Amino acid sequence: MSLLMPARLTHRKQQTERIYGRQTPWLGVDVGTHSIKLAVVTRNRRGQWNLDYAQRIPWPKDAEPFSSADRFGEALHEVLRQAESVWRTKNLTQVAFSLPSSAVSTQDLCHDADDLATIHTTATQTIREIYGSRPEKLAFDVWRPDPVEDSFADPPTSQLLWAEPDVVKNCVEVFRDCRLTAEILDMPPLTTARASEMLEGARESELIVDWGVTRLTLTWILKGRPRFTRYSIQSGVADLVQSINDAQDLTSTDTELVLARYGLPADTISGFNRTIEKTAADSLEVLLDEIDCTLTYLGTRYPRRTIDRIVLSGGGAAIRNLDYWLTSQIGIDSVQWMLPFGDGQATWQSLDPIPLFAHAASLSGLGYES
């Protein structure tokens, strides 16, 4: 059986009805290019999600985990050992994971799903442009999602998942060595859609702005399903952090703490808020431009649809008052991705902001799917 098949299963599981009873959560593992983020979520009988555990662990120094599949497996094993006591204590046995340079494409593939040669050509072109990955190292899984119950929906299109089989295989083997069973491989924007549904007051039509270190990803979610994804590989929050480092003579760690504590101007404005806004003006302008371009495209393509809310996730979402500032600039209600703490507050081992763990929490939430 293909190791990529569980991703198809994950997609179908999203369409099923949730079970709100007591179940064993899964360990969500979001494997990133700079760190690994782990999360465990719980769900009460009223259907409310809580964050029970979250931890970000950077890759070992000089590990170069993505130089080869073997190096990746060794580095992953070293990182997971640092958090092994968590799933031992919580009796976790199942894990769902995601990988960098892998994703599910929501781009319209206007070909029959059986026309794999044509889809492969389209996919490799997209992968080179967006991710810079080497398509010859990748494997693909193609399927047709169930149609959205929407009178304005486009005709059914194919969706595509890609990943490196050697890396996936090493992941599964490392998890097995840690006495964890890995059966689900899931990717953005499917994880993004599920993360948005975890929030209270989820809207029918939302734009998820995932502002990562090196890349900005914008995903339109309609009725819990991703309908459009746009990437900007030159718009990560790293540029903003670097500009403040240079202006204030701070380290990156200090700058992240300053952004989380003070952030942008809001109701209570200090001179330092204004200093941050002025120093970060170029990066904030890029963010606004990317959001505006996305909203313009969606308004043209789907004129009878409006965006009800913007949800911010990723490292950039940790900037204090960014949601308030964005609402004032764009005029659309904006919120940080945020879950309340559950009963396991004692296992909270991270000073990192909660929006960083949106994907990992989404993966953990698969344990509550029917």
Score class of each variant (00 low, 15 high):
residue 3 L to V: 03
residue 4 L to F: 02
residue 5 M to W: 02
residue 12 R to F: 11
residue 13 K to S: 09
residue 18 R to A: 11
residue 24 T to R: 14
residue 26 W to H: 04
residue 27 L to W: 00
residue 29 V to Q: 02
residue 32 G to D: 04
residue 32 G to A: 05
residue 32 G to Y: 02
residue 37 K to I: 02
residue 50 N to E: 13
residue 53 Y to I: 03
residue 56 R to S: 15
residue 56 R to E: 10
residue 59 W to S: 03
residue 60 P to S: 12
residue 60 P to W: 11
residue 61 K to M: 12
residue 62 D to L: 13
residue 63 A to R: 07
residue 66 F to S: 05
residue 67 S to T: 13
residue 71 R to I: 02
residue 73 G to N: 00
residue 74 E to C: 09
residue 74 E to P: 04
residue 77 H to M: 07
residue 77 H to N: 15
residue 78 E to P: 06
residue 78 E to N: 13
residue 79 V to G: 06
residue 90 K to M: 15
residue 96 A to F: 00
residue 102 S to A: 15
residue 102 S to Q: 04
residue 106 T to A: 03
residue 109 L to D: 01
residue 112 D to T: 10
residue 112 D to A: 12
residue 112 D to I: 06
residue 114 D to V: 09
residue 114 D to L: 12
residue 122 T to A: 11
residue 122 T to I: 10
residue 123 A to E: 02
residue 125 Q to L: 12
residue 130 I to R: 10
residue 133 S to W: 01
residue 134 R to E: 14
residue 137 K to A: 13
residue 149 E to F: 10
residue 150 D to M: 08
residue 151 S to E: 15
residue 153 A to Y: 05
residue 153 A to Q: 12
residue 154 D to T: 11
residue 155 P to T: 11
residue 157 T to K: 13
residue 159 Q to P: 02
residue 162 W to R: 02
residue 163 A to S: 06
residue 163 A to W: 00
residue 163 A to G: 06
residue 167 V to I: 15
residue 169 K to G: 05
residue 170 N to M: 11
residue 171 C to D: 00
residue 172 V to F: 01
residue 173 E to D: 14
residue 180 L to Q: 06
residue 181 T to N: 13
residue 182 A to W: 00
residue 182 A to F: 01
residue 188 P to V: 01
residue 193 A to N: 03
residue 195 A to M: 09
residue 196 S to F: 01
residue 202 A to M: 07
residue 206 E to H: 07
residue 211 W to H: 10
residue 212 G to M: 02
residue 215 R to W: 05
residue 216 L to I: 04
residue 220 W to A: 10
residue 222 L to I: 11
residue 224 G to Y: 04
residue 229 T to D: 06
residue 229 T to M: 08
residue 234 Q to C: 09
residue 237 V to R: 07
residue 240 L to Q: 07
residue 243 S to C: 12
residue 244 I to K: 10
residue 244 I to P: 00
residue 247 A to V: 13
residue 251 T to H: 09
residue 255 T to P: 08
residue 257 L to R: 15
residue 263 G to E: 03
residue 264 L to W: 05
residue 266 A to M: 08
residue 268 T to M: 12
residue 272 F to M: 14
residue 286 V to Y: 08
residue 286 V to C: 10
residue 286 V to A: 11
residue 287 L to N: 06
residue 291 I to E: 02
residue 294 T to Q: 12
residue 295 L to K: 08
residue 296 T to E: 14
residue 297 Y to K: 10
residue 297 Y to A: 07
residue 298 L to A: 08
residue 300 T to C: 10
residue 301 R to A: 15
residue 302 Y to V: 03
residue 303 P to C: 06
residue 305 R to I: 09
residue 305 R to L: 14
residue 307 I to P: 06
residue 309 R to C: 10
residue 310 I to A: 01
residue 310 I to Y: 01
residue 313 S to H: 00
residue 313 S to R: 01
residue 317 A to T: 03
residue 319 I to T: 07
residue 319 I to A: 11
residue 320 R to W: 06
residue 320 R to G: 08
residue 325 W to I: 08
residue 325 W to V: 05
residue 326 L to V: 06
residue 331 G to M: 07
residue 332 I to T: 12
residue 334 S to M: 03
residue 339 L to G: 03
residue 340 P to K: 11
residue 343 D to L: 12
residue 348 W to E: 12
residue 349 Q to N: 14
residue 349 Q to A: 15
residue 354 I to P: 00
residue 355 P to L: 02
residue 357 F to E: 00
residue 357 F to C: 04
residue 359 H to Y: 06
residue 360 A to H: 01
residue 366 L to Y: 04
residue 367 G to K: 04
residue 369 E to R: 04
